[in-house]
Amino acid sequence: MLRVDYLAVSGLPPVSFEVAPHECLAVEGPSGAGKTRLLRAIADLDAADGFVYLEGAERREVPAPEWRRRVRYASAEPAWWDARAREHFLAGAKLDRLILAVGLEPSLLDRPISELSTGERQRLGLVRALADEPRVLLLDEPTSALDAQATALAEELIRFQILAGRIVLLVSHNPAQIVRLASTRLVLPGDGRTAVVKSVAA
């Protein structure tokens, strides 16, 4: 269970909500409403007042690097620090299945990052975010640079994560994708009013 309790992200009213394992919460709102800021605060990448509990442990009780191994933020534009993709994964990680799952060839791992397309990098970023099996995935527009076919594969991988018992928070501008993946929605109004949780059907 991920419980967010009066989390005061800079410039936003405090938000509270819960997400259970096997659940995907979509985070919606206009640009600038604070969707990315909220995900970053949950991963403790930005300082914020309030509390975030994962399985009873508040984030401040857990060493920050360990917290981020459990609560993983994945940016819409994954950044790379080495020449090749493989150097961004733990040595010896079994990646082939995941790479194939998002429609890429495992040989891509040994090509220079600079030669990969935006979509290939975004899919590798998704694989990188979930390869070490974090408990919570905070996915910030994970398919924004993908075509329909690649989007379907990426969604399949995300759905598999949800089925496997992970907690997923999804920022997406694609209403159909939210219907396909999420069970509840958190709406950030972006006008100073408090965020509300709704069911996906509503």
């Binding site: 990448l45 360990e66 950044a79 620090w81």
Partner: peptide, 21 residues
């Protein structure tokens, strides 16, 4: 290299690991 440093931090690196390069 802000984005790359933060990517490493988000993946669970300590501050010195994230700044290694």
């Amino acid at each position: 290299e802000r984005a790359a440093i933060e990517a490493r931090i988000a993946l669970g690196a300590t501050r010195t690991e994230a700044f290694a390069t």
